[in-house]
Simulated scan of single mutants.
Amino acid sequence: MTTHTHQQNPADFYDVESTLTDEEREVLHRTRTFMREEVRPLVADQWAEGTFPRELIARFRASGLSGLAYPGYGEDGPGASHLLTGMMAMEMSRVDASVATFFGVHNGLAMYSIHAGGDQEQRDRWLPAMARMDTIGAFALTEPLDGSDIAAGMRTTARRDGDTWILDGAKRWIGNATFADHIVVWARDVDDDQVKGFVVGRDAPGFKAEKIVHKTSLRIVENADLTLEGVRVPEADRLQNVSSFRDVAEVLRATRSGVAWQALGVMTGAYELALEYAAERQQFGRPLAGFQLVQDLLVKSLGNITSSWGMLLQLARLQDAGVFRDEHSSLAKAHVTARMREVVAWAREIFGGNGIVLEYDVARFFADAEAIYSFEGTREMNALIVGKAITGESAFV
């Protein structure tokens, strides 16, 4: 087994990190250092205020962590493996799920939509600046009245008018949209009733992004309600390789596994906090870690984390081999987020009353887990995707 000189992740009990190459491990450690030194000092205050620290964008830009999965666009060569990008998402969420979500929306949903749905000219036009984080992306799919049923219920429309398209409608829960430069908007073509993708600039006339306030989860993420009223988009800014919702589903299939990695990071961060607190907190003349019931909670947490590592390791291998299917990412998202929910609750339990105070951090992980449990497909919707795959029967209504 490889011996590491860098600080280990104590929740990586079976040393999955050792499966990375030396070059991949360097990127992972760079991610770990960046999150510990640049992000951790900010997040408690920003979470309380419900604002995204814009100064982080320049720090991310300097880190060179963006765009690594896109051959020819990121700075580090031919394209990072799914295992590396997944472990990067885990490392980010291990410190803060909101910052990891900001990065995932930009680097995953927005960039992948352009990479997979755009033609070569569009990829060359948008992706280099996005990989450098000179420009930031957002992804607008969910609507005020349609979430899980968005494939059939999408109400945002696109109407062709010569060399332009006119977009009308509304979107909800759109991360990064209050400050993103490029928003990938999905709309239904009124002529053929098929979903198409458009890259909309934030200054486009008729486009409005209003920040959603009073959230109790992922408070650092600036989600927005979008309004599109007669927004004109050139045909050149319509994603040329998107012809139906199947192309949207391809993006979600690829990024859903990233949410499972985020869930692993959240339960890892909560477990580490609980383990440290149990060692330091004294009750009845001994540390909490010396009590059987506390050890039981910690071991159950580590079991959830370790089993999730195994699932995600194999999922990444299937992705890198190009043979993974919708049901593979759906099972991971449904299962790992459910295990995350258990771990953050057990971690908060170990903290007792201190577990609801923001300065102890575990409260942030506990609250943020709820959003991750729901987005990119609820547990129930992902269960039905897997259920159809294993039974051959569709239970969707």
Rank of each mutant, 00 (worst) to 15 (best):
R59L: 14
K300Q: 01
G175V: 08
A270W: 02
V184S: 10
M340T: 03
V213A: 15
G153K: 10
E376W: 01
Q8V: 13
V251T: 12
V362G: 01
E276T: 15
A48N: 05
G353V: 04
R25K: 14
G269R: 05
P53N: 06
R317S: 12
V95M: 09
P71T: 03
H106Y: 00
R253P: 09
H214R: 13
I356V: 04
G77K: 04
L312I: 11
E359Q: 10
D45Y: 02
I212R: 09
Q292P: 01
D134I: 00
T19Q: 07
T3V: 15
L275K: 13
F179D: 03
L297N: 05
L384H: 08
T178D: 11
K196D: 03
A389D: 00
F103K: 04
G67D: 00
A224E: 06
W346N: 11
D225W: 09
E229K: 14
A209I: 09
I385C: 02
Y73A: 01
R188L: 08
R172L: 13
R30Q: 09
V184G: 11
A177P: 12
G86D: 07
R40C: 04
H106C: 11
V357E: 04
D225F: 12
G50D: 12
A138N: 07
F102E: 03
I150V: 15
R281N: 09
M130I: 01
S330T: 04
T268R: 00
Q120G: 00
Y373E: 08
A152I: 11
G117N: 06
G355N: 00
P234T: 15
R172F: 13
H182Y: 08
L109A: 11
F198L: 10
A138T: 08
Q7A: 14
Y70L: 02
Q314K: 13
V266I: 15
A89M: 10
G147Y: 14
E143H: 08
A158T: 13
H328K: 05
P128N: 05
M133T: 10
E38S: 12
G77W: 07
H29L: 12
W309L: 07
D149P: 04
A209W: 10
L83T: 02
M35C: 13
W126V: 11
V213E: 15
F245L: 06
F13Y: 12
A129L: 06
W186C: 13
L145I: 05
I220T: 15
E210G: 06
M381V: 15
G392Q: 00
R54P: 08
D163L: 02
I174K: 02
E280G: 14
R40M: 11
D181T: 14
D163K: 10
R94T: 15
V251E: 05
Y73P: 04
G310C: 05
E272Q: 15
A289P: 14
S329R: 08
F13L: 15
S330Q: 02
F34Y: 12
A369G: 10
T33C: 12
L298D: 00
V386C: 01
D247M: 03
T2I: 12
D76N: 07
Y271D: 06
S374I: 05
T2V: 14
G353Q: 07
G169A: 13
D225K: 12
E370G: 11
G153R: 13
S18D: 09
K333C: 07
N9Y: 10
A224H: 12
T31F: 02
V248H: 05
E91K: 11
L318D: 12
V221F: 06
